[in-house]
């Protein structure tokens, strides 16, 4: 399959969105709103839930289901408030010693005048610094689009996994084509150069695991993913060198 075909699959609105993962993998999800600074961003959902019998903090980028919800959630492009809400929830996770699981699906951080004026860059930067030092286990799963800094702001983790048809890239193929060829219609060609597929990311050691999509969206799929997360959190929980390992994981690039 060509890279750009993956991009199209990753962007498809037929795929499960962040909330589906939360509802099917965890139980008793309680959503918590707001960044305590300015507002509440619908593009990021976060809160508390149980994984088996253990409390966890879950954070997901949500694109929305229908056109009204999609517009409200800005198609999963977070404002700075979204990243700051995630930051607040992660800091609480640390305080109460809960692991953090994030689900990422965004074409990128929201691009607009208000987002800039409220410090989009600063919000992402603060998440990177905080997540590099977070003392609790963190697993990040790219479930659709992984758009650059807007995705990385929730993907500084001990383990980063990707769905088979998810993509992860520093720039969109369209953006790359417009810089490289001054022609946005050459996005297909540009996608090939960017090495944005899960297989590419695995080879570059950007991710540790690719999750098969054979049964995407079925209860078997979510059960399988749930078992993977539980097992990995147990391993991470027992790991005494977790923070050193996370530093080394990113230091290696």
């Amino acid at each position: 399959m060509e890279a750009y075909d993956r991009v199209r699959i990753a962007r498809s609105n037929m795929r499960p969105t962040g909330i589906d993962y939360i509802m099917n993998i965890f139980s008793s999800f309680m959503e918590l709103h707001g960044d305590r600074r300015y507002g509440d961003d619908g593009a990021i959902i976060g809160g508390l839930a149980y994984l088996d019998k253990n409390p966890v903090t879950v954070i997901a980028i949500e694109k929305g289901k229908d056109i009204k919800e999609r517009t409200e959630r800005r198609f999963g492009s977070p404002h700075p408030e979204g990243y700051r809400k995630a930051l607040r929830l992660m800091q609480q996770a640390e305080k109460f010693f809960r692991p953090v699981v994030t689900f990422i699906d965004t074409s990128g951080a929201y691009c607009g005048v208000d987002a800039e004026e409220r410090g989009q860059g600063q919000a992402i930067a603060e998440n990177l610094v905080t997540m590099m030092e977070l003392s609790v286990p963190v697993i990040a799963i790219l479930i659709g689009e992984g758009g650059s800094g807007g995705a990385l702001a929730l993907a500084v983790a001990d383990r980063v996994w990707m769905l088979e048809n998810a993509v992860y890239s520093v720039i969109s193929p369209e953006g790359c084509a417009s810089i490289l060829f001054k022609d946005i219609s050459k996005a297909r060609e540009a996608a090939g150069y960017l090495k944005l597929s899960a297989q590419d990311a695995l080879q570059l050691h950007i991710v540790e695991r690719i999750i098969s999509e054979d049964d995407l969206g079925t209860s078997a799929f979510f059960d399988r993913l749930k078992r993977m997360i539980s097992q990995e959190l147990r391993i991470l929980n027992d790991c005494e060198t977790r923070n050193e390992d996370r530093y080394a994981r990113f230091r290696a690039f």
Partner: peptide
């Protein structure tokens, strides 16, 4: 440098 460039942001932040 694609994702390798993106990862520098996390690496330096650490």
């Amino acid at each position: 440098e694609g994702l390798v460039s993106l990862m520098q942001m996390a690496k330096i932040s650490g």
